Simulated assay, not measured.
Amino acid sequence: MSWLRIAFGALLLATNSLIHVPPLLVVAVVKALLPLRPIRRVCDWLLTAIAASWIGINTALIRWFTHTRFVFDIDARLRPDGHYLVMANHQTWVDIPVLQAALNRRVPLLRFFLKSQLFWVPLLGLAWWALDFPFMKRYSRQQLEKRPELAGRDIAATRRACAKFMHIPVSVMNFVEGTRFTRTKHEQQASPFANLLKPKAGGIAFVLDAMGRALHSILDVTIVYPDGRPTMLDLFANRVREVRVNIRERAIPAELLGGDYQNDPAFRERVQNWLNGLWLEKDQLITQQRAA
């Protein structure tokens, strides 16, 4: 029976994507071919409206198709026309529909930094491209040793992506741990946090450097699954009893703006200490939520 639920749920989501992606691509092509400012503004509005509808229907399907209880604790003044840096812990692919359920239409469309390989995901890759999601190509240490000229390309890509977001409402999404939490990764890192991997400050620092004075604030999101980390199959099999989402709005510290993360060790330490402090609070909150 659970496999029937999963298959039917996947069919509904696929149908919703087939309805929304074609008009999204049409508008994106118009925007690319007619790069006049008034046309681009209308296209940006249409793209955002189509994406919000797509996400809204996905959320409605999840709520209708499952008995999962979503508990949102929001201490923030959310603005659909704002500029936010959104930071969250990352445990499972379920995090993404959870974030969308919590923030869709309350803040500008969440835009994730994606691995370049995801461009080739059928339909979704083109949709992410149309919505100006930044695609990042990661280079291994071995690749950089063989081709030193590749160093810094990620940073340049981050700057180009952020430049697009300077003049439109945006929520730049960053999973600060850089990967999904597992106990194996936690042990390999010797993470000092009970429920989290070590945060990576570089991506945050580059976004703040490129966009800091255009951002209104930081939205610090903590996602807790009281019954353990679920998979997408668990969600559609109706095996996720509850999801708790805590959202706190935080001011951007002035001392984190205008620094050189790459070349200034003192500034780099300042960013890392600030982020580790947030992560300690988040770790304690997760422990409290799981004990409640």
Rank of each mutant, 00 (worst) to 15 (best):
R37F: 14
R37Y: 14
I39D: 07
I39V: 09
R40M: 10
C43G: 03
D44S: 10
D44K: 03
D44L: 00
W45G: 07
L47Y: 11
L47M: 00
T48G: 06
A49Q: 04
I50A: 01
I50R: 02
A52C: 12
S53F: 14
S53N: 11
W54M: 02
I55N: 00
I55V: 03
I55P: 04
G56S: 06
I57N: 13
I57H: 10
A60K: 13
I62L: 02
I62S: 01
I62V: 03
W64Y: 14
T66G: 01
H67L: 10
H67T: 15
T68Q: 05
R69S: 09
F70H: 09
D73G: 09
D73A: 07
D73I: 03
D73Y: 10
D75E: 03
D75M: 03
A76K: 05
R77G: 14
L78P: 00
L78E: 07
R79D: 15
D81L: 09
D81H: 11
G82S: 01
G82D: 07
Y84T: 06
Y84C: 13
V86K: 06
N89T: 09
Q91L: 14
Q91C: 05
T92I: 06
T92H: 13
T92V: 10
W93H: 07
V94I: 13
V94F: 15
D95I: 06
D95V: 06
I96W: 12
P97I: 07
V98L: 03
V98W: 04
L99F: 03
L99E: 04
L99A: 10
A101T: 08
N104S: 04
N104T: 01
